[in-house]
Design a protein around this nucleic acid. Structure first.
Length: 292
DNA sequence: CACCCTAGGTTCGGT
DNA sequence: ACCGAACCTAGGGTG
């Protein structure tokens, strides 16, 4: 089916920007991924998206995509608000169409526990291994993808099995966090609507979840657009571009960001992250000579 | 081809 | 409270 999209949308940039790790590119099929246990294939075409999902009607697929791509966010207005800052204005202009994604809490939490000390392709590899080994197959013709396994199954798999799947030292944390969630000691459902600080405190009680991972989950899965996850890219960027002092604690930088960028600082983080990785002026190895 | 280093962080042990 | 190091492993860079 064709889905008309009038909002700015750069599909490839959005899908592979390290928010969701379930999307893969395929020359023949376009991009395919798994959203809320549905296999979805997408291709960007003039005026919108060509979308396809086995077993989903047009109405259901439309609402699934509006949900995932946050098509109800008025991106133009958010851009305008952020563009009062000249540094951000340039990043927004360059990466126009890069959108925040909306994710389910558990897959997001598990993915970002895996993100520790790994790059995007490595994270995607771990997440895919989890799904392939423990998830339910979703098949259509030659294409097979898998649902993301629920907490109980990940807990049941245990540390040793997760290590076999290539998670390394993250296996212990993920198995333990899954057990806490599966056992009901921490309800991810009950976190919805909880204020940022309190939700953050609760998430951080989970093994493998620190400030950065908690903020990623809150931003992407709990509608906290004022969360500002700070990884090494973002920290380096704000230190260099905004003269934020080196050595500021995480929470000090986050407070500065909320003050400086306002209630949509989560979107600001997205563009800063992308600009830091992809330049110009990127800190990425070798990016400087290619793009400047 | 062997070796070194880093990658979207968290945790643990020592001041 | 505040640093510093270790932690698995894949992948790219260097000798």
């Amino acid at each position: 089916m064709f889905l008309s999209v009038t909002q700015p949308l750069d599909l490839a940039a959005t899908l592979f920007s390290g928010q969701d790790f379930r999307w893969r590119h395929d020359d023949a099929l376009g991009s395919h991924g798994v959203v809320k246990d549905h296999l979805v294939a997408l291709r960007q075409v003039p005026g919108g998206l060509e979308a396809w999902s086995p077993g989903l009607g047009e109405k259901a697929l439309t609402s699934l995509l509006r949900w995932h791509f946050r098509l109800d966010d008025d991106l133009e207005r958010i851009h305008a608000g952020l563009s009062t800052d000249p540094v951000l204005a340039r990043a927004v202009q360059r990466h126009r169409g890069l959108r925040l994604l909306r994710l389910e809490p558990w897959p997001a939490l598990a993915s970002f526990i895996c993100s520790s000390h790994a790059n995007i392709s490595r994270i995607a590899q771990m997440v895919e291994a989890l799904a392939t080994a423990l998830g339910r197959p979703l098949q259509s013709n030659a294409l097979v993808r898998h649902t993301f396994p629920p907490p109980a199954l990940v807990a049941e798999a245990g540390e040793a099995r997760l290590r076999e799947l290539g998670l390394g030292f993250r296996a212990r944390s993920l198995a333990a966090a899954a057990a806490v969630v599966a056992g009901g000691q921490l309800s991810l459902e009950a976190l919805a609507g909880v204020p940022l600080d309190e939700a953050r405190r609760r998430l951080i009680t989970l093994p493998g979840v620190g400030e950065k991972v908690a903020d990623c989950v809150l931003l992407l899965a709990y509608e906290h657009l004022d969360a500002f996850p700070i990884d090494r890219w973002v920290r380096r960027a704000v230190e260099q571009w905004y003269r934020v002092p080196r050595g500021w604690r995480y929470e000090a930088v986050a407070a500065w960001a909320r003050e400086h960028f306002g209630p949509y600082c989560g979107y600001a983080q997205l563009y800063i992250f992308q600009a830091a990785r992809l330049g110009p002026g990127s800190f990425a190895k070798g990016a400087g000579d290619a793009t400047v």
